[in-house]
Design a protein around this nucleic acid. Structure first.
Length: 659
RNA sequence: GCCCAGGUAGCUCAGUCGGUAGAGCAACGCACUCGUAAUGCGUAGGUCGCGGGUUCGAUUCCCGCCUUGGGCUCCA
């Protein structure tokens, strides 16, 4: 029997019998590896374990507990889901079912317009477990286009995919299904179930099993509102029971941190339906946190920026000039007819800042001119898109528009990045990544050269600053390239917060000019930038990041003072008074609940410091300190506690806001 | 806007196969005066989201609307 030789990622070589597969290779290396294997990378391309290896191939085994491995498990589990649905609901048309981050989905068109209910998920899960137990093989075959069309004759969506792929119109999702080659690859599980797929897949369904179906949702075919509405089932799948459970625990943890839930529990704010969708009222506890955030923001802008204020309404002419009525009308609230014209609530602050810029002649000596405003804007978000504070219809941007010369741009961006990171760090974020969005060649204003120059300035700034970034080709708005900054929160989720956007459009539309040192008029570049983005959304992110336990400098109540018995209440009140006089937010608890209950209540409110005072404290001028997340200390001198508190609060290092 | 699931006391939820409702927590009152995460007893609290229909009778069934949540789409 002839031999083949393959090389492994570590550079070593192995000899195998001709016709050997990746699973044979894995077995020859070790039974543990064979057991963990779910796929292989052969000569750089993902491949089935059961595919014969070519002689001289570079082979890496994909194991289950890796990103690639999980992706493969999830994709295979999606096929099992499709088979289960087709079995349970005969006549179902199945469409696409990719792996996604942390899971997978599959979209179906059910006979007679049937929709899935939550109960159906159990039914489907059980059927999936049967399929997995049956250990059906995933058998790959490649067929001609005409054979494929015949094979899927009763599956119009599959036929549409095949036709698009073969006519060269495939996009990413289609390519996932069948690849983009000449022939069509399919995977067969049983005589009756075969699915279009590029693969690879696990060798058999028995390799799967640690999955959970999560929710039913509607989704448009091909993501188009004009297409039919399909029924989507979301699920997750993992390499082991433990990993699945860990994931589900993580989801539960995220749910516990949900800012809408915590906003109610901690009495921060509410969304009364009488107000209207996407609008919030801030209760005192939420408002104080917001005020502290805004105070901090203002303090940080004190030096380099000039504060401005602009109204909430503007005449339609302004938005005609800015172009918002052309490009952004769907996002704007309906107009109001008034005596001398038509007015709109502003969806953005930039047009008004441009009016300030051009209110008089500007000299190059004034640039960069940085106008700053906590500006409240109103946007008509579609009803289905509203989401707590994360997506609302009225919100406040920590908005600045910077007018500068082309030559100033890069230095400006570098210092902006530094400023942004510094502010975000003060709010407890330490992990940052950026996206650089570049020109969409089909939709842009301004010259190619200015785009190139600005994009290079942004890229250079990111490189100089040393921030990790990805380039999103073609993702910029039509008016200029941008940098978006993502942070990672305490449970590893990414949030897009800050943004820096160049604008070559508004300066033109408003005919902004400055007089240069050459005594000629020049057009400035405009940069939109926001650090929080939206104060409301940033607040929501903070609530989730801290799980409602705000750091001492932001906590609505920093100290609660509890008297052991009524006899100590006067002393408790005097401590509150003392702390308040020093500028801290302290409260005495006047309920006549038992001490343990009052402590519990304070803990549930996530107050950073609970002080308990009794006979000993009254006698000695001390307090018992029960810090959030720390151990109880008795007999602490009041001054010592004040110093601890002061140090804790000062950790945010607020310039200009020191106590 | 589209698909799905909800809307019952301040909050979290149970319930009624059609005969107008219940728990825990919270609130209030009384007693307990307590040294570090839930003392006991009691009181009050609801047009069961809104409007229509079917019915002797609707919170329950049907229709419409509003609203919330999960998705899709959207976010120049």
């Amino acid at each position: 029997m002839s031999q083949i030789s393959v090389s492994l990622p570590d550079g070593s070589k192995r000899d195998l019998e001709s016709g050997a597969t990746a699973i044979d290779l894995a077995k020859s290396i070790g039974s543990g590896l064979a057991k963990a294997a779910v796929g292989a990378v052969v000569n750089g391309a993902e491949s089935d374990l059961t595919a014969p290896l070519p002689d001289g191939a570079q082979v890496a085994i994909i194991t289950a507990a890796t990103d690639e491995g999980r992706h493969l498990l999830r994709h295979s589990t999606a096929h099992v889901l499709a088979q289960a649905v087709v079995q349970l609901f005969p006549g179902s048309k199945f469409t696409i079912g990719p792996a996604i981050e942390d899971g997978f989905y599959y979209d179906f068109d059910l006979p007679g317009g049937k929709t899935f209910s939550e109960e159906d998920l159990d039914l489907i899960s059980n059927k999936m477990r049967e399929i997995i137990k049956a250990d059906q093989p995933f058998v790959r075959s490649e067929v001609s286009v005409s054979d494929a069309l015949q094979l899927f004759a009763d599956q119009p969506y599959k036929c549409e995919i095949i036709e698009r792929v073969t006519s060269g119109g495939a996009d990413g999702a289609d390519a996932d299904e069948v690849g983009s080659g000449e022939s069509i690859s399919v995977y067969r599980n049983t005589d009756t179930f075969v699915d279009l797929c590029r693969g690879p897949h696990v060798p058999s369904t028995g390799r799967l099993g640690h999955f959970a179906l999560q929710k039913v949702a509607g989704a448009y075919w091909r993501g188009s509102e004009k297409g039919p509405m399909l029924q989507r089932i979301y699920g997750t799948a993992w390499e082991s029971k433990a990993a699945l459970e860990e994931h589900l625990t993580r989801l539960a943890e995220a749910e516990k941190r949900d800012h809408r839930r915590l906003a109610t529990e901690l009495d921060l704010l509410s969304f009364p339906s009488e107000l209207g969708g996407g609008l919030a009222v801030w209760h005192p506890k939420g408002a104080i946190v917001r005020k502290l955030m805004e105070d901090y923001s203002r303090a940080r802008h004190e030096r380099e920026y000039q504060f401005v204020y602009t109204p909430h309404l503007a005449n339609a002419n302004l938005f005609a000039t800015s172009g918002h009525l052309d490009f952004y009308k769907d996002g704007m609230y309906p107009p109001m007819e008034m005596d001398n014209g038509v007015y709109y609530p502003k969806p953005m602050n930039c047009p008004m800042h441009c009016l300030i810029f051009r209110s008089r002649q500007r000299s190059y000596r004034e640039l960069p001119l940085r106008l700053f405003e906590l500006g409240t804007v109103y946007r008509y978000e579609r009803a289905g898109t509203l989401h707590g504070l994360m997506r609302i219809r009225g919100f406040t941007q920590d908005d600045s528009h910077i007018y500068c010369t082309e030559d100033q741009l890069q230095a400006e961006i570098i210092s902006l990045l530094d400023f942004i990171m510094s502010v975000l760090r003060a709010f407890g974020f330490n992990e940052f990544t950026a996206n650089l969005s570049t020109k969409d060649p089909n939709k842009y204003v301004g010259s190619d050269s200015i785009w190139e120059k600005a994009t290079e300035a942004l890229r250079g700034a990111l490189d100089t600053y040393g921030l990790e970034y990805k380039i999103k080709e073609g993702d910029a708005a039509f008016y200029g390239p941008k940098i978006d900054i993502d942070v990672r929160d305490a449970i590893g989720r990414k949030w897009q917060l800050s943004t820096i956007q160049c604008d070559f459009n508004l300066p033109d539309r408003f005919e902004l000019e400055y007089v240069g040192s050459d005594n000629a008029r020049h057009r400035p570049i405009m940069v939109h930038r926001a650090l929080f983005g939206s104060v409301e959304r940033f607040f929501g992110v903070l609530v989730e990041h801290f799980a409602g336990a705000f750091p001492a400098w932001l906590a609505p109540v920093q100290v609660k003072v509890l008297a052991v018995a009524q006899a100590h209440e006067e002393y408790a009140a005097s401590i509150v008074q003392h702390l308040s006089a020093l500028g801290f937010r302290a409260e005495a608890v006047i309920a006549d609940d038992q001490l343990g209950k009052r402590i519990r209540n304070a803990k549930v409110e996530k107050v950073p410091y609970v002080l308990v005072v009794g006979d000993d404290d009254l006698a000695n001028g001390t307090v018992g300190v029960n810090p959030r997340g720390g151990d109880v200390q008795r007999d602490v001198a009041l001054n010592d506690f004040v110093n601890t508190l002061r140090a804790d609060v000062a950790e945010a290092a607020i310039p200009g806001l020191s106590q």
